[in-house]
Design a protein around this nucleic acid. Structure first.
Lengths: 342, 342
DNA sequence: TCGTTGTCATCAATCGATTGCAATATACCC
DNA sequence: GGGTATATTGCAATCGATTGATGACAACGA
């Protein structure tokens, strides 16, 4: 294992001062002879010199490092978001600390402190979806010495930049589409109890129904956690209704539903139509592919970085910026068009 | 946005020296009166003081930060590995930089430099699977001033701790199992052209055949990249053979195969048996579930951290450690037992 | 009164880089 | 040769924390 080489050592070897070496290696405009420049660069390369960013950060008062907290890196959506964001950060010379909290506000707080203490220049927060006690977290966020951007979801009532897809709109679009295809008895399978985004999607679902004068029937609203087995369990009841279509408010929920449908020998869209959310890769396996509300994590990442970038450059306004993105309905083949019979 | 509070400021406010404040806040054994201790802690809390880890790192000569480079964070296996590793690191007070390279040796090198420059205390490398020109990367790794642990795969011939599952053994176990179930014409669908792990799995497959005197038939060996559409494409040819079983050397490859099977109306295991690798979550959707070779990323993470931990504590031997883990065959329902007819 | 012991707290150097200002050396002009 | 301009390079302070060495002061015993 090689040793760490410092500026001073390089300076010693070339017989110049550390300052000169620093100047040259950073390509600062300065008057160092061409001869010495070359020498310095050569010696640095030969010794595998890598500047100590830690030391540099200390004096420069910036680390060119950002942080990200997601609830669960193993979820496809967050992994993709993290990947896009990391790439985007790197393009601008920032490194990204990706951390995964498990979803509780306490963990979020702990991670946030870790990030701040490590000197990140800013943080992206994907927090605030669960209904846990977030007072300490709010308090911390509001006293943050660095810019923060809330992504995909937010802690309500906190003055802070936000970038997210319109979840209510997503629920609305999905339901609206089903209505347009002639469906009247539309069930939904959502995580409204424990998730703000789920609750919003449910609100969109209800708005679409209300808008065309369809009744909001509590017997058609089903609850599921955001993972496959939970949705699988809940699906039996869904299928016992007279619904001709289901709005599944997440990809995992849709997958649980599909598994149940498959087992019961029901076909899509022949027996029942389905609109999903966040097409997951698994989706390619199904014939027909699922019609779904799509949120491109890359777009989310791009806008989030944009906000952050502005703040870092001091170009952010005094007030928090709020970016709301519209999701997209991707029509594939899981919805049957019903002939109207009224 | 609050300001950053420093040790000195706290010291000023309580009317003591920075040293005293440092001593107290770090719970160092020292003689500071109970009274002042309390005062310091209170003032620090009131001002939301967070120690600057950057400054601390500089003098302590360690950042309690580690780095990870994976080829693609959006892949389930790596996401899971990253998640487990991050959690494990945190348990020991380390933060983890998770970076995703895209798989080329050049990107890997760039990321590695980034990590080193940022002062990580060690790096986990999931690199070396693609056949790109890795000379610069090897050079860099061999001159690294910090410990490195290669995970899941390795750059051949580099003296460096390694932790990985036995890919050859995995291929062997899968094939061996199919043979034991009475299969004689066994196809395989692997990524041998562009992946070392794929090549090893293929070697295992061939060893199993050879061991029982079955012919190694090039017409039964098919090539596929590690993503679904590629496997889907390749599968048509696989299904045109007289094979009664297929060994699919990755989860995505299996999924592509399944999609094709599904479309052709073939049933598993009735028409053809399948052994997969790395059960992905999507797998729960299929009836029957896929029999597969499993590699638990959590186990990989645990051992990788173990190696790193030893090195960091200076307890690592002079020679590189090599941990080879055995994968596990998880029997589910995608393999038909053939009655022997010889 | 002086020395000793013990308690509480501070000094000052250090980590590895950056950078404004000062210093030296060389060239050039008259 | 003296003076000025210009080309090169070095000094030393600084970032925010850590820590071994050291100081100040009170109490106590002889």
């Amino acid at each position: 294992m090689a040793n760490k080489v410092t500026l001073k050592q390089i300076a010693q070897e070339v017989g110049l001062s550390p300052s000169s070496v620093s100047l040259v290696l950073n390509n600062r405009p300065c008057r160092i002879s061409e001869e010495n420049r070359k020498l310095i660069k050569e010696v640095a390369a030969r010794n595998h010199y890598v500047p100590n960013q830690i030391a540099r950060s200390l004096v420069m008062r910036e680390s060119r490092t950002l942080g990200l907290i997601v609830p669960n890196i193993e979820s496809r959506f967050f992994a993709s978001l993290a990947g896009s964001l990391e790439k985007r950060c790197r393009e601008d010379g920032y490194a990204l600390f990706i951390t995964s909290s498990g979803g509780s506000a306490d963990d979020d707080l702990e991670l946030l402190r870790q990030l701040v203490t490590r000197g990140v220049d800013g943080v992206f927060l994907v927090v605030g979806d669960e209904f846990s006690d977030d007072r300490a977290l709010r308090e911390e966020v509001s006293h943050l010495p660095i810019p923060a951007v809330m992504v995909d979801r937010a802690i309500e009532g906190l003055e802070c930049d936000k970038v997210m897809f319109d979840h209510e709109m997503g629920g609305y679009m999905a339901t609206r589409y089903l209505i347009e295809q002639g469906h009247r008895r539309i069930a939904c399978l959502v995580n409204a109890r424990r998730s703000n985004t789920g609750r919003k999607r449910l609100a969109g679902y209800e708005r679409a129904l209300r808008e065309v004068g369809l009744p909001i029937d509590a017997r058609l609203e089903f609850e599921s956690e955001y993972y496959i087995p939970s949705a699988y369990e809940a699906s039996e009841a869904v299928l016992a209704t007279d619904a001709t279509a289901v709005f599944a408010s997440s990809d995992n929920i849709a997958l649980g539903l599909l598994k149940r449908l498959h087992e019961m020998g029901k076909s899509i869209p022949g027996d029942i139509s389905v609109v999903s959310y966040d097409n997951s890769a698994a989706d390619v396996l199904f014939e027909p592919a699922l019609t779904a509300i799509e949120q491109d994590p890359g777009v989310l990442a791009e806008h989030a970085f944009g906000c952050m970038s502005k703040r870092l450059a001091g170009r952010g306004g005094r007030r928090a910026e709020e970016v709301v993105l519209e999701p997209e309905l991707i029509v594939k083949g899981s919805v049957l068009e019903l002939t109207k019979h009224n």
